[in-house]
Design a protein around this nucleic acid. Structure first.
Length: 421
DNA sequence: TCTGGGGTCCTAGGACCC
DNA sequence: TCTGGGGTCCTAGGACCC
């Protein structure tokens, strides 16, 4: 059988690149983007990496470097990043129908049957995306998705590849692999790295050459797939159609810790509405609702508390009001007074596609409520996500998240469009 | 003072059944 | 005093990804 060819197209420091497109002064400067609530650093420019700022580090731990080196800091602007992502993916989709959008800034594509020089083709994709969107990407090409990831890592790390690296010729691979740590492999995280290191396996070449039995024992079944892919045998196909989701969670940490049940009830009311709106957009009904609350796991002075509970619904639903009531009931049940709550969340699961749910003998006709939900969704789509709310949300803002350094929505709000002098 | 959010999958262990 | 074996299903926890 002919070998398959995969490419992984991955945007470089995606959130930072999005900010730079609309603010070229940021080019060649250290720039970082923050997680929700301005907590951790989740995207770094090359210059910020060079300053030793690590991925995922809390902002306050690097505040001295940030100040001294004049690092530009951005709150995350998902409206902007989501829209830029859509543009990048649309361009990739013009090159091929064999596309798996893997995350907001990455896509795998199949390159079988592409005529001519495949590396050349990679450069063409890269150039087109840069020209049309301003976003720089790296392209990794190989016979398996896991190797395409490795190739992408090499392309990013090593300037001599000009952003495109192909591992299609096997003799190439073994020269490059000893210099890359096992932790860089897709599917090998912190714990597995530690375990592999303990067994004397430090780089990708060593991992690839370890026998199946040992791999299976140390890394379980998926680890064996990963290693087989490193050997050039494809186990993970391109997943062009997104599988229907199995759960939907909306959770946030609060801008300030909350003590009162009332404040938490408002927050979870919003979370439940947003979660239900998301599954409604996918024509799903939920049969299981859970809520969790917790204090800060980093707070050493106060006692830690975590609790969660779920309720099974015999008639699956996507009715905001019905679910908000259930969420409120669970919240009351798991809330304990006297704690400083830092985060809460609502998780929906046990989905049925609309029309395929089991019918409850005693359920009442809910056509009116269905129409109400459709109308609310229409209004919220047109006038903004939170236009129609449920009364329990109240929006008193006691838990509003921090978002002090957010850029404008350049591409989605007419008032924020750049003006050229 | 300040530490993200949203997913998936696997495994181990307990409950339960015959 | 002696106390099976094999199966399924569910859940919690841990690992991974971006």
């Amino acid at each position: 059988m002919k070998n398959k060819i995969f490419a992984l197209i991955d945007c470089n420091a995606f959130y930072v690149s999005c900010e730079r497109v609309f603010n070229p002064k940021l080019n060649n400067r250290p720039v970082v983007a923050l997680s929700n609530n301005d907590g951790c650093i989740i995207a770094r420019s090359k210059e910020a990496k060079a300053l030793g700022i690590k991925m995922g580090v809390p902002l306050f731990k690097v505040k001295d470097i940030v100040r001294k080196e004049k690092v530009h800091v951005f709150s995350s602007n998902y409206t902007l990043y989501g829209d830029m992502s859509r543009r990048v993916m649309n361009i990739i989709a013009e090159f091929t129908n064999d596309i798996e959008i893997y995350s907001i800034d990455e896509a795998f594509i199949g390159l079988d049957g592409i005529p001519g020089d495949i590396v050349e083709y990679g450069h063409k994709i890269r150039k087109t995306i840069l020209q049309y969107t301003g976003i720089p990407v790296s392209v990794g090409i190989a016979n398996t998705k896991t190797l395409a990831k490795v190739a992408n890592h090499i392309a990013k790390d090593n300037g001599s590849f000009s952003g495109v690296c192909s591992l299609l010729e096997l003799k190439n691979i073994d020269k490059l692999l000893p210099s890359i740590e096992v932790g860089e492999v897709w599917g090998v995280g912190r714990q597995l790295s530690k375990k592999l290191n303990m067994h004397g396996i430090y780089n990708i070449k060593q991992l690839k050459d370890t026998d199946d039995f040992r791999i299976r024992k140390m890394m379980s079944i998926n680890g064996l797939k990963t290693v087989t892919e490193l050997r050039g045998i494809s186990c993970l196909p391109l997943e062009e159609v997104r599988a229907t989701r199995k759960s939907c969670c909306t959770s946030r940490s609060f801008g300030q810790n909350l003590k009162e049940l009332d404040d938490i009830q408002q927050a979870v009311a919003i979370f439940s509405r947003r979660a239900v709106e998301r599954i409604r957009a996918e024509n799903l009904l939920t049969s299981s609702v859970s809520v969790f609350l917790r204090t800060s796991p980093f707070d050493k002075k106060n006692k830690y508390y975590f609790n969660s509970s779920s309720i099974h619904i015999s008639t699956p639903t996507n009715d905001t009001i019905e679910i908000a009531k259930i969420v409120s009931r669970i919240t009351k049940q798991i809330f304990k007074p006297g704690y400083l709550y830092q985060k809460a969340g609502v998780l929906l699961s046990g989905f049925y596609p609309e029309g395929e749910e089991p019918i409850d003998l005693f359920s009442r006709d809910s056509k009116i409520r269905e129409d109400l939900m459709k109308t609310i969704d229409k209004i919220n789509t047109r006038f903004g996500g939170d236009t129609i709310q449920i009364a329990s949300e109240q929006h008193l803002g006691t838990w509003a998240q921090k978002k002090d350094r957010c850029s404008p929505n350049y591409t989605t709000n007419i008032n924020s469009v750049l003006v050229v002098d």
